[in-house]
């Protein structure tokens, strides 16, 4: 058992909200990932049992959606939006600077496991570009120095 009893209880509350049990699969994966950091095949097997579906049906959902991870991630997720409105205002240059600053390529995790650097498609902050999303929080109207300061403060 990798999913805690507490998370399991929260999953049951989600299941109760939907006319069909499987409606709660995305909310469940959010809860499980919040607890475990990613959704491994073993975790997917356990989730599959809860929903009486095949593990592959869980994994196809995990790998379809960008916010679910099938492998371990850094302690912090730093995502720079690189869609067109952000690119027009320098987001790709900012991402290159962060790559140099952290010594990783986009998509990689720092060797100390502190930060996974990534880029995302439009995050709905188009007028306040460039921007990044860190652990669910938006940081907008950035310049390179400010972005480095924010990233350096992550422990």
């Amino acid at each position: 058992m990798v999913i805690s009893a507490e998370t399991r209880a929260r999953i049951d509350l989600e299941i109760a909200k939907y006319p069909k049990r499987r409606g709660a699969l995305l909310p469940t994966l959010h809860l499980v990932q919040e607890e475990l950091g990613h959704i491994s095949l073993d975790t997917a097997k356990e989730v599959a049992e809860i929903f009486a579906i095949a593990p592959v049906e869980v994994m196809e959902v995990v790998t379809f959606y960008n916010m679910f991870f099938d492998r371990p991630q850094g302690r912090h997720h730093v995502y720079v939006c690189t869609n067109l409105p952000c690119s027009l205002r320098g987001a790709r240059g900012l991402l290159r600077e962060l790559e140099k600053h952290l010594g990783v390529q986009t998509g990689e995790t720092t060797p100390d496991g502190r930060i996974t650097l990534g880029h995302e498609e439009c995050l709905g902050a188009c007028a306040y570009a460039p921007m990044m999303r860190i652990d669910g929080k938006y940081h907008e109207d950035l310049d390179v120095d400010e972005a480095k300061r924010i990233v350096d403060a992550l422990r």
Binding site: Y18, L26, P27, L29, Y65, N66, M67, F68, E120
Partner: peptide, 10 residues
């Protein structure tokens, strides 16, 4: 009313 969060798919 039930609020569900998506997971990153346009």
């Amino acid at each position: 009313v039930v609020l569900m969060l998506g997971a990153g798919a346009y």
